[in-house]
Nucleic acid binder design. Structure first.
Length: 474
RNA sequence: GGCGACAUACCCAAGUUGGUAAGGGACGGCUCUGCAAAAGCCAUAUUCCCCGGUUCGAGUCCGGGUGUCGCCUCCA
């Protein structure tokens, strides 16, 4: 235990744009980690999921290095408009329209769907999931604090944060505020400055919103960024050790979170900011959840892929680089996982202590790869090289289990069962295999090869082993 | 219009402080096998988008160019 602490964790901190050594302040017993979660108006797509995988690699790495982690992830179940003005549709209400459900049902449905994806991908559940709608009082409280300190002003449609009053506003995202002003694509409305943003929005007088709450400013709903600040600070305190999210959040969402949080408390909001880069689709670009055109995990599953295959694909690239998704790449992850299991499955149950110098060296190499800003691709390379080495099975087995604490590929279990997609029933397949075995025994290879071909046409692959014939479907 | 990222073999992809290109997949050869598969072995970028420069030495630093993409509107 003390041994692993010797390795130094180093992460890229968006705030400083450089790699820094990660340590915990002396009086802090557990890592205070907050990650921006999904807005549950639709399914999470595989690009979203890549981010949660990155956060999972981070969480598992911290624990691998003996840190206790207090990990909070929010569920945004309150709709935000598509712009500061009321010109856009509320995401949740749009989801309700699309599905014919109430906004609350929509939130519940997609929250459950999200949990299922997380579970399938073997992502460790956060210590706490928190919902925006369960923390309305905390959000109102935070807005009131800002109001009391003079950081807000009201317009006819809401309470706004006065970003010019926070002189470090542009620092985090290295914004060029003057040019932002010129290039703004969105109508300012009554806002005083481009970077000002809504803390609380008033419900329109003429229509009833599906989600609205009473507040000191009248009926309305929270602004887009306040929930994260309110929940993060409510559950983890004024300062977080790590705050994660997608890179798209840097400019707007996280900049605003910092502004409102630090103005309210006067303390640093987050010590480390870590951002996951996007998944790209072929030549086109990123997947867009709001456009409705995206790939979900379920689509992958329906096509016969296993969640661990996607997880392996995510592991092969670095979280701060684009990952170019293609089915060709997924297929290679699929074969890669199969090949990995061919090496690890025979080791199951053979684990001994990791004690030899060479075993400790492999472990050290793996650890240093992960400590180097989560170099999962390198760590995977070490796993492969270790498996091909002349280390004995007991230590190999133990190392596989050890590495998998971070990789999370479920290598402690045998190759996952593939969905049986053949039109043939299992009994028919086994009957044909029996016939083939008979033919083989009679050395009637013409017949045995005919059966092999027949099954191959059905997508069934046969493999003769010392233990008999086994099969798997494509 | 502003800001920024990336460019490594057929595909995915790693490359600390510059020192002579991980790993995975596919493909090819050999051994083994009735066949096939598995397994094992071997091979596989004189080269890192292009052009200059710094250096004994650059994928790695500097300058210029080209290309792709992202953000500036909710978005991981």
């Amino acid at each position: 235990m003390s041994k692993s602490k010797q390795a130094i964790l180093r992460f890229y901190n968006t705030a400083s744009r450089s790699i820094e050594e990660f340590t915990l302040p002396k009086d802090v017993p557990a890592v205070r980690m907050y990650c921006c979660g999904p807005t549950v108006y639709h399914y999470a797509h595989i690009g979203n999921l890549r981010s949660y995988l990155f956060e999972d690699f981070l969480r598992r790495t911290l624990e691998y290095f003996d840190y206790e982690v207090n990990h909070v992830v929010n569920i945004t179940d309150v709709g935000h408009l598509t712009s500061d003005q009321d010109e856009g549709e509320d995401k949740m209400e749009k989801g309700a329209e699309r599905t014919g459900k109430t906004v609350w049902e929509v939130a519940e449905y997609y929250t459950q769907a999200f949990f299922k994806d997380i579970d399938l991908l073997n992502i460790v559940a956060p210590t706490l999931w928190c919902k925006a709608t369960d923390h309305i009082p905390e959000q109102i409280d935070l807005v009131q604090k800002l109001e009391a300190k003079g950081y807000t002003y009201n317009t006819s449609d809401g309470v706004y944060f006065d970003s010019l009053k926070f002189d470090r506003y542009a620092d985090f995202a290295r914004l060029d505020v003057e040019n932002l002003q010129k290039g703004a694509r969105i109508d300012m409305g009554e806002k005083k400055f481009v970077t000002d943003f809504a803390l609380w929005k008033f419900s329109p007088a003429d229509s009833q919103r599906a989600m609205e709450w009473p507040s000191p400013w009248g009926k309305g709903f929270p602004g887009w960024h306040i929930e994260c600040s309110a929940m993060a600070m409510h559950h983890l305190g004024p300062t977080l050790d790590i705050h994660c999210g997608g890179t798209d959040h840097i400019r707007i969402h996280h900049t605003n979170e910092i502004a409102q949080s630090e103005c309210a408390t006067g303390q640093t909001f987050a010590r480390f900011w870590m951002h996951g880069e996007f998944l790209r689709m072929g030549e086109s670009s990123k997947m867009s959840k709001s456009s409705g055109d995206f790939l979900t995990l379920k689509v992958l599953l329906d096509q016969g892929y296993h969640p661990m295959e996607y997880r392996l694909l995510a592991l092969t690239s670095h979280y701060r680089n684009y990952l170019n998704f293609s089915f060709e790449a997924l297929d290679s992850a699929k074969d890669g996982l199969r090949n990995l299991h061919r090496r690890t499955d025979p080791l199951i149950g053979k684990a001994t202590a990791i004690s030899s110098d060479s075993a400790l060296k492999w472990q050290h190499d793996f650890k240093s790869a992960m400590s180097d800003d989560l170099n999962t691709a390198k760590a995977l390379g070490i796993l492969n090289s270790m498996l091909r080495s002349d280390l004995d099975d007991g230590e190999k087995s133990a190392l596989v289990l050890d590495f998998d604490k971070v990789l999370g590929l479920q290598l402690d279990k045998t190759m996952p069962e593939k969905a049986k997609q053949s039109s043939l029933a299992t009994e028919e397949i086994e009957a044909l295999i029996a016939q083939r075995d008979q033919a083989k025994a009679e050395r009637n290879f013409i017949e045995s090869d005919r059966i092999r071909d027949e099954l191959a046409n059905q997508g069934i692959k046969l493999q003769d082993t010392p233990q008999g014939t086994i099969w798997e479907s494509e």
